[in-house]
Each structure stands twice: as structure tokens, then as C-alpha cells.
Design a protein around this nucleic acid. Structure first.
Length: 780
RNA sequence: GCUCGGAUGGCGGAACAGGUAUACGCGCACGACUUAAAAUCGUGUCCCGUAAGGGAUGUGGGUUCGAUCCCCACUCCGAGCACCA
């Protein structure tokens, strides 16, 4: 009885065993030579909840690809690490008083264990952690390079402020006017902030998308976000006014439709436009103007955009502009539908052509010309390119992030730390709350804050802002390559150049769509900068980018703790095994699309694995299969191969299910064929296939075997089924040798009663023949 | 509002250089094995019709010998952007 039980498929008896053996043999450790393949899935934020089913989907997909590449002879790097700085850990620390260092340690331990239990073929020797001082030393080093090249600067700007998290947010972190993390309404606050000049790279970030293999929807989203538009800057003279400064005699507007200039009947400035203050003395209704400016200033972003888009504005009375095309005097208005941050902060309004201008003109009774004559594109100004992309707000007023390595010296101003003084370590503290003044808790640690200026030796204060959690993830793909040298990141940068050149770019990068305008754009920018200063040799970090769909709870809702509908992958692994979970998540539907979890369907793949396990009993010593089976067999090898490449994992598995059924139906299974089947299944279900491979008596592991190639000649059937249609409707089918000519098929078709009865007394007008597929007889 | 996806059995989904719609899986029904149940295996499973045949891929048109696939109009769902001149 016990003996019999051992022979049944039991994941508990095999999965751990192989995981330990892989680890012991260091089978997944990448070398730094050979034909390389760098596959990457976005590294996780190690939250206290552990891995969720969505993680499993993405990591399994890249694990399948990585395992296949290894069998194809590539030197594969499939690394893993932890993006561990960030708010949830800090908030947890505030709530419990437990140090974020400790929380991070606990959480990464859990994640690591879970990944191992899933059989992920990570190179654990290259594990990185963004909160490790050896790691963030480099994040800080890169910040200093930005600073050195004038790409990091501090400025007082109106930022998005989350009053609950007490933190400034980048534009990319504001969703529908609310904080991306906690959903609180975002306020505007004037604050000194660090910014990175990502806008200097806007054009390259846009253009270079054409050189890389990203999914179209990803490229589109990035293009929309960068928002490149080509237009013309046109100067409208201000009439009836004497200026001391010549520059101030004109209002510069940006338009993508300079051809509509003859229809421009008024000008609009953004309320924050600098010129307004300069024109103050000439504006008759200044009180009214000032009142409007203040109202706009105090409106939140959400209010400004959500008030039904009802247009508001005030005319600047006392001054007029002149349309250079018509030479007519036109009024000048200010209105908040014109944004200071885009173009020149001023527009020429063409109410006949632009919907917003039309609404505004109607509300305030401004003239609308129809039937104006079109102008040439550059007749009244010169062509310029504008972007929607804004500079990246790079500082956060929080504890749990990389300290920004500069000091503020009373005499020298902002002074960067010397590179040899990195890392600037985050001091351990007892309280993690942000201060009410909106400063980081670091500000209250006087023995850390008060320091000496590296330049003059005088008194100085450390910068207390920290970096956003997008910093560490902007270059982690480089860290994996660097990490390989000696398992540390301690060497000077020159030591890493060879290995960086060898590994970069990442060959295949998978991740979530939610990171398209954040992480993906930031890291491309970061890499381009490092390319420009000679640290890396490719200007794009990722050759190919794909994305996985979300996994939703049953019924299509998002999984969430509050709804109690969260599926814990640990439970599935425990009950059914890692191989079953991996295969289920790959089989459940199209990889790129969102899909609902359904426990019932797990049994489908579990049964498949159990049946596969039993198949070994049918192995025979015979040496040849029939041609028909071989055709199916080789077609399956090809399909599994091609489907993995296009991430159509669901149909790859379905093809293997069909093959299994066919092999069960037959009286015997050839050992050769069985082994090939094991190999093509192995990336999906690595444990059971290693076990069965070993049971066949092999000493080597299946992961060390070669990926099978289909025999294209054997894929072709000797006979094919041809569908016979009459007037496009299927009436019969017949078997005929592959590659038969039209006349042969027609001759055979005529003999079929189901065809013949439609032909009686009628004339065939036209014959359409698709070789090996279909014959369509068109009748009168 | 704009941009991009999507809509196929009871359910998840296949089929895309226009060529047998519903592969594969789940569920369900019946049968075999069991004293019995579970498990397993086998058969069936879009709708109407005894059949011949007809109707079905969100809706309505069009192109074509032939349309899930291409074109036009619309409805609904999802994602992204959102006064970007």
C-alpha cells in the first residue's frame, strides 16, 4: 500500500528536493561569459503581505523564458532583489515603532522563502536590496553625477502635497487629483524641492522608442506622457503701451495651428504669467485681476479641472494686443484654462477652430470669425517643439529613503559630499513621524544634521530630504550585473565596466502597465544619462518590454484584504504544489490581459500533471511511431516553442494537453518521445519533470539538457482533410493526399453524395481552392 | 472629452496574411470500475429542428465566393490621459 502511494504524483515528496539540489549545484548562477541572455521581471516591494498571485504570474512567465533560454545554450541571468525603500514600511514603523530595517529584513526573508518554494530559477548570488548602504551608495553617487552635470537642481515650486502622508509627490504620483498611495486630495504647496531635469531628455526618450522592442501600447503611453508636439511660437505685439524693456512689448504664444492665426480674436495668458505683474500700472481693473489670480492660486488641481470645465477668466483692461496677421487690435485675457507650465503660458485664441476657445468666447461674448483665410505654417513665427513632460520632483520629506548627499553651507551654498564619503548612511532613529512643518524626521536629529562643509570646513546643515523610492529602482538592472563580480558593490565604477558592457541591455523585461510612465520612463532617463557620462554602453536599458495583466478575485473585483478575497499563493503551493500553481497561472488566460482567479480551474492542470506522471508506465522499447503521430508530435514541439516566445502560455499548455491525450490513447510511448515531452514541459513544471527525468536513469539534470527542435519535415501529414463548400457553406469534407491539385480535389468532391446533390441541374460558375484546406464551388 | 484595448457556449478562453467558429480546461449529463462513495477512465455537451436544413462570435449596415477577422455607424466594458493650445 505504502509502496503504491509512492508511485503516485505527490508534489510534497519532490519539489523541496529539487529546489535544494538546484541551489546546491548553483545551477542558476550566471557566469560572465558566453552567449548572454538577461531576463528581468520588475523586482518586488517586500510588503508585509508576502507574495501575491500577481507576482507569481509575472515571475513564472520570465522563469519559463529563462529556463528555455538556458536549455537553448544561453548564459542566462535571471536575478532578483528588493525595492525596499518606501512609504508602507515607514508607515508600519510609525504605527508599531519597529525599525524599518527590521521590518524589511523580516519581509524579504518571507519573500525569499516563497520564491524558492515556487521553483524560480533566480541567481540568488546577485540578490540586491535598495536599502543596503552598499547599494544606495551608488544611488547617491549617481545623484552626485546628476548634480555635477546640472541635471539636479533645487527650486521653490508649487508641488503636489499629500496632507495625510505629509509628503511631496511627483506629477506621476498624482492620480485624479489624489495621492496615488492613500487617495487623499492633493494640495498645492510652494516648497523647496530637488528636481531632476528629465525634460532635457524628453526628445530622446520619445524618439528612441522607435529603436526598441516595446509593446505598442507601452510606447503609446510613454509617447502620450512625454507629449511631444511641433508648433510655432508667434509674437503678438502689445499696442498702446510704452515699455522700458523691449522684451516686454510682446506676448509670445505657442500654437500647433499657426495656419489659424487669421481667426485669432483674443489672447489669453495663464494667471501666473510673469508679464502680468509688469503690466500692472497699465491695467485699469487691477483689483479684479488680482482677485482672480488669488482665487486660482488657492484652488486645488482637482477643483481647477473638475468644475465641469466651466471657463473662468478676467480681461486685462487698458491694454490690447495686435494680431500680426490681420493687424487688428484684440483684447488680452487671463484664464486658468491656460497653463503656465506648458508652451509659453500664453495662447492665441481661435474660437472658430478650438473648442475651448469657443466656449470661452461664448461665455464672455468675444468675437468669433468664421471663414478666415489659412496662413502658411511658419509665416508668423518659427517652428519649435514642446513637451508635456515636466521635470521630475525628486525629494521626499520622509525618513525611509536614500539621504541626498549634499550639505547646505552658509558660505558656499549647496555643496555635494565627496564621492569617497559615500554612502551617507541613514541614521537610526526612534521616531519616524514626519514633522508638521513638512520636514523629514531627519531634520530633528541634530547631531546628524549639523556637520561641516566639505569645501570650507565651516558650519553646515545636511540636506534632510530623502530620495523617492523610484531612485533605487532606476538602476537596479545595472546592480545585478555589478553584483556578480564579488557579491559586493564595493569596487570603484571602472571595475564594473566590462561586466556592464557584457550584460547590458536587459534582453527581455516584463512588468506591470502601472509602471509605464513612472519606473519605466524614469529608468530609461537614468540609463541614458549614465550612457552619456560613459558608465554604460547602451543608451536604452531594455531591449524588449512586455507586460502582464492583473489577476483579479473571482467575480472580477480587485483582490484586497478589506474585501477578504485575497488568494494566498502559499496555500495553493501547499495543497497542489508549485508546478500546479505555475501552470494554472499560465493556463488561466491570455498573459497580457486581466483575468479572474477561479479555484475550480486549478484541477484541470493538476489532473494534467497526474496523468503525465502515469504516462511513464506506457514507455515501450519500440523504436518507431506512425507518421500521423509524429506529425502531431513535431507540431506540438514547434507550437510550444513559438508560444513561449510570444507569451501565449495558455495555448502552449493546451497543445501539450492534446499531445498527452493522444499519447494516452496509443498503446505505447517511445522513450525518445517521452523525453522530448519532458523537456518542453520542464520550463512550466520544473519539479515534476526533473523527478521523472531522474527516474529514467539520467545523471544530468533536465535543466542541463538541450531544448528540442522540431523536425519540420515530419510535421507535415500525408493526408489532409479538405472542406468542400457550396456557395461558401460547408457541405462535406474529404481526405486527400497533402498537396493535391485543384482538379484532383474537384474530381473527388464530385463523387461525394453530399456535394453532388447540390450540383444537379446547376452550373459551377467559379471554383475557389485553398490548397490543403478548402474547396468552394460557387453556383449560379 | 481624447487615445488605446476589448465584447465569442453555463464559465475561463481557442481560432487572426479573410478559409470547417467554439480547440484546451472547468462545469454538467450519461456510462464503466466499486457493496457504495470518492478518485479514475470512456462518451456526450452552442441554439431551433425527427430529419433535410436553418440560425448564432455585442447591435445595425457594407465589401467578398467566403467575415469573429476588413470598412462605416452605434451600444456596453476596461485601461491610460485629461483645459497640453
Amino acid at each position: 500500500m505504502a509502496e503504491k502511494k509512492n508511485q503516485e504524483y505527490n508534489h510534497r515528496l519532490i519539489e523541496k528536493k529539487w529546489q535544494l539540489l538546484w541551489e546546491k549545484k548553483k545551477i542558476f548562477q550566471a557566469k560572465n561569459k558566453g552567449k548572454k541572455f538577461y531576463s528581468l521581471m520588475e523586482f518586488p516591494y517586500p510588503s508585509g503581505d508576502g507574495l501575491h498571485t500577481g507576482h507569481v504570474r509575472g515571475y513564472t512567465a520570465m522563469d519559463i523564458i529563462s529556463r528555455k533560454r538556458r536549455m537553448e545554450g544561453f548564459n542566462v541571468l535571471y536575478p532578483i532583489g528588493w525595492d525596499a525603500f518606501g512609504l508602507p514600511t515607514e508607515n508600519y514603523a510609525i504605527k508599531t515603532g519597529i525599525s524599518p530595517f527590521k521590518v524589511t529584513k523580516t519581509n524579504t526573508d518571507i519573500f525569499r522563502k516563497q520564491f524558492k518554494e515556487l521553483g524560480m530559477s533566480f541567481d540568488w548570488s546577485r540578490e540586491v536590496n535598495t536599502t543596503d548602504p552598499n547599494y544606495y551608495k551608488w544611488t547617491q553617487w549617481m545623484f552626485l553625477q546628476f548634480l555635477k552635470h546640472d541635471l539636479a537642481y533645487k527650486a521653490k515650486i508649487a508641488i503636489n502635497w499629500c496632507p495625510k502622508d505629509k509628503i511631496g509627490l511627483a506629477n506621476e504620483e498624482v492620480v485624479d487629483g489624489r495621492c496615488e498611495r492613500c487617495g487623499t486630495l492633493v494640495e498645492k504647496r510652494d516648497k523647496e524641492q530637488w528636481l531632476l531635469r528629465i525634460t532635457r531628455y524628453a526628445d530622446r526618450l520619445d524618439k528612441d522608442l522607435d529603436t526598441i522592442d516595446f509593446q505598442e501600447k507601452i510606447k503609446l503611453q510613454q509617447k502620450n506622457w512625454i507629449g511631444k508636439s511641433v508648433g510655432v511660437e508667434i509674437e503678438f505685439p502689445i499696442s498702446n503701451f510704452q515699455f522700458s524693456n523691449k522684451e516686454d512689448t510682446k506676448i509670445k504664444v505657442f500654437t500647433t495651428r499657426p495656419d489659424t492665426i487669421f481667426g485669432a480674436t483674443y489672447l489669453v495668458l495663464a494667471p501666473e504669467h510673469k508679464l502680468i505683474q509688469k503690466l500692472k500700472s497699465q491695467i485699469i481693473n487691477w483689483d479684479e485681476v488680482l482677485k482672480y489670480i488669488n482665487i486660482v492660486k488657492n484652488k486645488s488641481e482637482l477643483e481647477r479641472t473638475s468644475e465641469g470645465k466651466e471657463k473662468t477668466g478676467v480681461e486685462l483692461k487698458g491694454i490690447k494686443g495686435r494680431n500680426p496677421a490681420t493687424n487688428q487690435e484684440i483684447p488680452i485675457w487671463i484664464a486658468d484654462y491656460v497653463l503656465l507650465s506648458y508652451g509659453t503660458g500664453a495662447i492665441m485664441a481661435v474660437p472658430a477652430d478650438d473648442k475651448r476657445d469657443e466656449e470661452f468666447a461664448q461665455k464672455f461674448n468675444l468675437p468669433i470669425v468664421k471663414n478666415y483665410k489659412p496662413a502658411g505654417f511658419e509665416d508668423f513665427g518659427k517652428q519649435v517643439v514642446k513637451f508635456k513632460l515636466r521635470d521630475w520632483i525628486f525629494s521626499r520629506q520622509r525618513y525611509w529613503g536614500e539621504p541626498i548627499p549634499v550639505v547646505h553651507c552658509q558660505r558656499c551654498g549647496i555643496v555635494p559630499l565627496s564621492e569617497k564619503d559615500l554612502p551617507l548612511k541613514l541614521p537610526k532613529i526612534g521616531r519616524y513621524e514626519p514633522t508638521d512643518t513638512g520636514e523629514s524626521p531627519l531634520a530633528s536629529i541634530s547631531n546628524w544634521v549639523n556637520t561641516r562643509c566639505p569645501k570650507c570646513g565651516g558650519r553646515a546643515r545636511r540636506e534632510t530630504d530623502t530620495m523617492p523610492n523610484w531612485a533605487g529602482s532606476s538602476w537596479y538592472y545595472l546592480a545585478y550585473a555589478m553584483q556578480g563580480i564579488s557579491s559586493t558593490l564595493r569596487e570603484p565604477i571602472s571595475k564594473y565596466q566590462k561586466t556592464l558592457k557584457y550584460w547590458m541591455p536587459v534582453d527581455w523585461y516584463n512588468g506591470g502597465m502601472e509602471h509605464t510612465t513612472l519606473h519605466l520612463l524614469y529608468s530609461r532617463f537614468w540609463n541614458k544619462f549614465l550612457y552619456d557620462i560613459g558608465v554604460v554602453t547602451t543608451s536604452e536599458p531594455y531591449k524588449k518590454r512586455t507586460s502582464h495583466g492583473l489577476i483579479l478575485a473571482r467575480g472580477g473585483e480587485k483582490m484586497s484584504k478589506s474585501k477578504g478575497n485575497v488568494i494566498n499563493p502559499d496555500d495553493i503551493v501547499k495543497t497542489y504544489g508549485a508546478d500546479t500553481l505555475r501552470m494554472y497561472e499560465m493556463f488561466m488566460g491570455p498573459f497580457e490581459e486581466a483575468i479572474s482567479w477561479n479555484d475550480d480551474n486549478i484541477f484541470g492542470v493538476l489532473r494534467f500533471l497526474e496523468r503525465f506522471w502515469r504516462l511513464k508506465e506506457k514507455i515501450s522499447k519500440k523504436s518507431k511511431s506512425d507518421q500521423k503521430f509524429e506529425a502531431l508530435f513535431h507540431r506540438t514541439i514547434k507550437k510550444v516553442n513559438d508560444d513561449i516566445e510570444s507569451m501565449a502560455f495558455n495555448t502552449a499548455i493546451s497543445a501539450m494537453m492534446i499531445l498527452l491525450k493522444e499519447m494516452e490513447r496509443r498503446e505505447f510511448v517511445l522513450k525518445k518521445e517521452y523525453e522530448v515531452f519532458l523537456k518542453i514541459l520542464s520550463p512550466f513544471a520544473p519539479h515534476i519533470t526533473e523527478e521523472l527525468w531522474r527516474k529514467l536513469g539520467h545523471k544530468k539534470l533536465i535543466i542541463e539538457e538541450k531544448w528540442p527542435k522540431p523536425d519540420l519535415k515530419k510535421m507535415i501529414d500525408l493526408e489532409v482533410k479538405i472542406v468542400v463548400q457550396i456557395n461558401g457553406r460547408v457541405r462535406a469534407e474529404c481526405l486527400i493526399e497533402t498537396g493535391a491539385k485543384e482538379t484532383e480535389v474537384l474530381e473527388l468532391a464530385r463523387t461525394l453524395p453530399d456535394v453532388n446533390k447540390w450540383l444537379i441541374g446547376k452550373e459551377i460558375k467559379k471554383i475557389i481552392y485553398v490548397p490543403n484546406k478548402l474547396l468552394n464551388l460557387v453556383m449560379v
